[in-house]
Each structure stands twice: as structure tokens, then as C-alpha cells.
């Protein structure tokens, strides 16, 4: 049996290495799917919530939008206002009890993380959309673009770029918060660690390793997102086409 701290760490790495990797894989899988699906949900909710309702729209149309907005606000408030660990219990056990749904813990986990993230993303995306200068809408309208064309081609590309740091935040939060899903026996990193630690009653050593793995996961994700952000920003320089003397010449130009 190992005697010192480092011996124990080495012991667990050797014996449970694959276990940790599996747990980390599950964690990053749930967090990725949850963040992407949550982003899609949030974006859809925000786009619908920002559809302008004109004074001279028909009453039916106005009432319909009012109703839809009410539903969305209720969704956002409920899922932001309760802890994910509680949502996990209610949805996992509730769906079995009420509708006889036999969800696997993994399906339940994906569903819970997505819908929970969606509630936060909806507000993040709405913030992104309303932060775009009104002049951008007006310019698009002035050349005849419809609201949806304006959204798809002009507003959303800018809004998404602007909210990328917040999306990164949500991703990092999701990597860490999937740990609460151990309450419905999802075999993510925290669940795996608890099992390994319990077998030998060595909690400090095991969770020290777990801690490092979580940090590596979140740190890689933030680096990756920074990279994506810089890609979306585009190059600082641009190419000047043609010149006075040689029309075909291409000259590199910088920011003025």
C-alpha cells in the first residue's frame, strides 16, 4: 500500500487513469452538448423576444406575441431561479413518476444542462442583440431588407461575436456544474472520483487529481474560445486592390 501523498496520487493515476479519462470525457461531452444546445435554445428565444410589434399590427398578432413572450419569460425565470441540482432531481424522477418516462441518466443530463443553459443564454443573446446600434437595423431596412433578413445577415453575426466571452463563461460553468449530476448517477468526472476515493477512503488524493483535471478542461476551453474570438475578429490589415501606375498590383494596407 502507498504511504505518502505522492505515492497515493501515483497509485490512483495508475489504477484509475482510464476511469478518470472516461469521467472527464463524459463531463466534457455533457458540457459541450449542453452549451451548444443551450446556445441554440437561447438564441431562438432571444430572436423571437426581440421581434418588433408595430402599433398597427392586428390584435391577434399582438396577443400571440404577448403570449409567446410570457411563456419565454416564465421559462427563463424558472430555470434561472432554481438550482440545477434540484432541476435534475425533479426532471429525472418526475418524468418517471408522472409520465412513466424511462430516461437514462445520460439523456436526462443532456436535457437538463441544455434547458438550464438555454435560460441563461436567452438573456445573454438578448443583451447581444439589443446592444447592436440601431443604425445597423435602419440601414438594413433602408435598402429593403426584412426583419428576418436583417437579423440573419447583419445583427446576429455581430451580436454573436459580441457575446462570445459570455458563451465561454457558460461553457466553463457547465464543465464544473455537470458535477451536480452525480445525484442522478451520471458517470461524469465527479461521480467517478467519488467511487474511486470511496473504495480506498482516500478523498484528498483523488480529489486533488480531479481538481487538476477540471482545471485542464476549463483552461483548454477558454484558450480555444479566445482563439475562435480572434478568428472572428478578422485580420487587422486588408489588401488594397490595384494602384495608380500598375492597376493589377496588390498592396498590403494597414488599419488607418
Amino acid at each position: 500500500m502507498p504511504t505518502s501523498f505522492f505515492e497515493w496520487v501515483a497509485f490512483f493515476v495508475n489504477k484509475y487513469g482510464l476511469f478518470f479519462i472516461q469521467g472527464a470525457g463524459t463531463t466534457i461531452f455533457i458540457a459541450s452538448i449542453g452549451t451548444i444546445a443551450g446556445f441554440a435554445i437561447g438564441l431562438a428565444v432571444a430572436v423571437v423576444r426581440t421581434i418588433p410589434v408595430e402599433e398597427n399590427d392586428s390584435l391577434a398578432r399582438k396577443l400571440f406575441y404577448k403570449f409567446v413572450r410570457f411563456i419565454f419569460v416564465a421559462y427563463i425565470e424558472i430555470f434561472r431561479g432554481t438550482p440545477m441540482i434540484v432541476q435534475a432531481m425533479v426532471i429525472y424522477y418526475g418524468s418517471a413518476e408522472l409520465w412513466g418516462l424511462d430516461m437514462s441518466p445520460m439523456v436526462a443530463a443532456l436535457f437538463i444542462v441544455s434547458i438550464n443553459t438555454g435560460a441563461y443564454m436567452a438573456e445573454i443573446a438578448r443583451g447581444g442583440i439589443i446592444s447592436i446600434d440601431k443604425g445597423q437595423y435602419e440601414a438594413a431596412q433602408s435598402i429593403g431588407m426584412t426583419h428576418s433578413q436583417t437579423m440573419v445577415n447583419i445583427i446576429l453575426p455581430q451580436a454573436i461575436r459580441n457575446i462570445l466571452p459570455s458563451i465561454g463563461n457558460e461553457f466553463v460553468v457547465n464543465i464544473k456544474d455537470t458535477s451536480v449530476l452525480n445525484v442522478i448517477s451520471v458517470t461524469e468526472l465527479f461521480f467517478m472520483s467519488k467511487s474511486a476515493a470511496g473504495t480506498y477512503m482516500r478523498y484528498f488524493e483523488v480529489f486533488f487529481i480531479t481538481c487538476l483535471i477540471y482545471f485542464v478542461l476549463t483552461f483548454s476551453v477558454t484558450r480555444l474560445l479566445l482563439f475562435v474570438e480572434r478568428k472572428l475578429e478578422g485580420p487587422d490589415s486588408f489588401v488594397i486592390h490595384g494602384s495608380q501606375t500598375v492597376p493589377q498590383a496588390v498592396i498590403k494596407g494597414g488599419r488607418e
Partner: peptide, 15 residues
């Protein structure tokens, strides 16, 4: 609107 163009004080080019 396609037939009636508009040029704004603050340009409003699509960023």
C-alpha cells in the same frame, strides 16, 4: 425601400 435609398449621417455601414 429598395427604390428609395438612404444615406445616413452616421454612415451605418454593416460592421
Amino acid at each position: 425601400r429598395a427604390k428609395v435609398g438612404m444615406v445616413f449621417q452616421s454612415f451605418n455601414l454593416f460592421n
